[in-house]
């Protein structure tokens, strides 16, 4: 099976992860712009971060046969530094129209402060102006209220719910999101967000329309194989192959494909010559080593993520 992980922060991950992801069937992934674990203090570091996403990280992924896309935005935590946020807002137009940028994201609320609200709204307007999907980060604390507010504000700014992916859902938020016509994304992330047994039951209950799963793997204890592992678990527990395909591949493609910057042919028609060029000449596998393709089994990992 082929998979798309529509939310994974590869800048924080190693080449072993890329190798394991490709081996597990992940052909494309989306890296939302987020925060790095500690607040940045200069606008220039944002510029370099964004250009890293569309430059080196895209290159790094390509060496493992994975198509790398990203969403560009000012995350909610760092929106709280207003002077900095102002400067970052001026950078965004330089990046949102780049090739392979499939949305504005991840944006939304964290502590739900007035500053977060202000830059969330400004970025919704930007997304509407350039006709890109929006990838919304919903808060960990006060989640249900924050999720509802995210959607209300998006509607207030005239966004089509079909262009908005609401992320980090759980059992308490999924119905509201689906009822309003938004895409509902679920993050399979140990301990803090969703586990994949719970996820299986959500798909059993709500079906596969407008639902997608991701790993949101980053610098925390997280799992870049969450999507393929969850697919396997779902199949094992009687979810249909069609539904598994929808929530681990097709819906992400449909939602973010609305950007015009992501199509199946990007990976299905990728030239094998490109691959050999990259592998013989690349600089990560230094000095012309051949790539290791027979590792990354992760036999020790349980497929279950709690």
């Amino acid at each position: 099976m082929l998979f798309i992980d529509p939310h994974v922060h590869m800048t924080s991950r190693t080449t072993d992860d890329y190798e394991a992801m490709r081996k597990a069937g992940i052909v494309a992934m989306i890296e939302p712009a987020f925060w790095m674990g500690q607040p940045r203090t200069e606008a220039g570091t944002f510029k370099d971060y964004y250009s890293h996403l569309i430059g080196f990280e895209r290159f790094r992924a390509s060496q493992f046969g994975i198509k790398h896309y990203c969403t560009i935005g000012l995350n909610s935590k760092e929106a709280n530094n207003e002077p900095l946020a102002e400067e970052v807002m001026e950078l965004l137009p330089l990046f949102v129209l780049k090739e392979g940028v499939v949305g504005v994201g991840e944006i939304g609320y964290d502590d739900q402060t007035p500053a977060e609200d202000k830059y969330y709204r400004l970025q919704l307007d930007l997304a509407k102006e350039v006709n890109l999907p929006v990838q919304i980060h919903t808060p960990h604390r006060d989640k249900r209220k924050g999720t509802l507010r995210s959607m209300e504000v998006a509607l207030e700014h005239g966004l089509d719910p079909a262009m908005v992916i609401v992320d980090h859902n759980n059992e308490e938020t999924v119905k509201d999101v689906l009822d309003r016509g938004f895409w509902a994304a679920f993050t399979i992330y140990p301990h803090t967000k969703m586990g994949n047994e719970r996820m299986t039951e959500i798909v059993r209950q709500y079906g596969h329309e407008r639902i997608m799963i991701n790993s949101a793997a980053d610098w925390g204890i997280s799992d870049p194989l969450a999507v393929p592992k969850t697919a396997e678990l779902m199949l094992e527990r009687g979810i249909s192959e069609e539904s598994v395909r929808m929530v681990t591949y097709q819906n992400a493609l449909a939602a973010f494909g609305q950007s015009g910057q992501m199509q199946e042919s990007d990976w299905l028609a990728a030239s094998p010559i490109d691959q050999s060029l990259k592998f013989s000449g690349n600089s990560i596998l230094r000095g012309g080593q051949t790539p290791r393709v027979e590792t990354g089994e992760n036999e020790n990992d349980s497929r279950i993520i709690r």
Binding site: K47, S51, G55, F59, L94, K98
Partner: peptide, 9 residues
């Protein structure tokens, strides 16, 4: 140059 993506570079 400083804001270019892979192809653009």
């Amino acid at each position: 140059f400083s804001t270019a993506d892979l192809n653009e570079l």
